[in-house]
Write a protein that binds this DNA or RNA. Sequence first.
DNA 1: ACGTATAGTTTGTTGTACGAATCAATCTAG
DNA 2: CTAGATTGATTCGTACAACAAACTATACGT
Lengths: 143, 143
Amino acid sequence: MTGASEGATLAGALVRLAHLVQRIFSEVSRNHDLTPQQAQLLCLLIDGPVGMGELSRTLNLEKSSLTGLVDRIERRGLAARTRDSCDRRACQIALTDEGIRLANKSHRDVIARVEALAAELSSADREMLISSTAKFDGLAART
Amino acid sequence: MTGASEGATLAGALVRLAHLVQRIFSEVSRNHDLTPQQAQLLCLLIDGPVGMGELSRTLNLEKSSLTGLVDRIERRGLAARTRDSCDRRACQIALTDEGIRLANKSHRDVIARVEALAAELSSADREMLISSTAKFDGLAART
DNA sequence: ACGTATAGTTTGTTGTACGAATCAATCTAG
DNA sequence: CTAGATTGATTCGTACAACAAACTATACGT
């Protein structure tokens, strides 16, 4: 992932950055007794119930993998399946109260940790970082 | 991971970015019949043999987890353990010829995919992205 | 109504990751 | 120089993650 002497290549910097974010995410998850995947799922549900199909797409997970993940999150009482009224095959995954609590806490913590790291950057640098990464993300969205 | 309506927050952009890099990494790995973890290990060994201790630290993995990962990579003939001459407890993990081939190919592919995405950015934007992410990585290194 | 497509689950397998216990080599006091 | 602590790595048991293929049930088009 690092390796192969990339001093200031774009890819190198981005890969290191991804690794870093990943680590933060893992640590935060662990602090809340969640796996990174479970925390990620919770965060994805913060804005409201989502169907399995959409989850599968945004998480890049096979439907079968997702079933298990949701099973475990449900077994812990953090979310629940509710049958979709329009389509009786489909279901929506919604956070429980406990799930909302945990999701918000995790989300908040991740943000805090990232912001803490960035605290030493000048606000100009922060702006640049935001705009350039956002621009990059934008490119990817159209793929 | 996304969720919670962060329009242009720093953390939000970085998390999305990490997710994106992660996805690229997964796809490339899969194309070479590797898991992301295995590919990451291979890339880490490109610059030469590394000991278990250092690997464990840079990968953020418990020693016991690493043992299994190296086992599987070794079973596929991509790397080999060699006892350290100075410390007979320790061992160095070195790529085999086949491992070198695969590692380089994977590494190259990841870079290519990232660069392809960034190709549409103006060179000024690329420069900004590089310098700002590198600066951020630099901050984290001192943690 | 029939066939096809879609949404999710089940099943079986491989890989990932941890912690606790273990083992051997090394280091360090005394 | 040896007893005890430390360090580097493996083993074992367990839980989770991820996939593919096969399957169930609902929805939809003609």
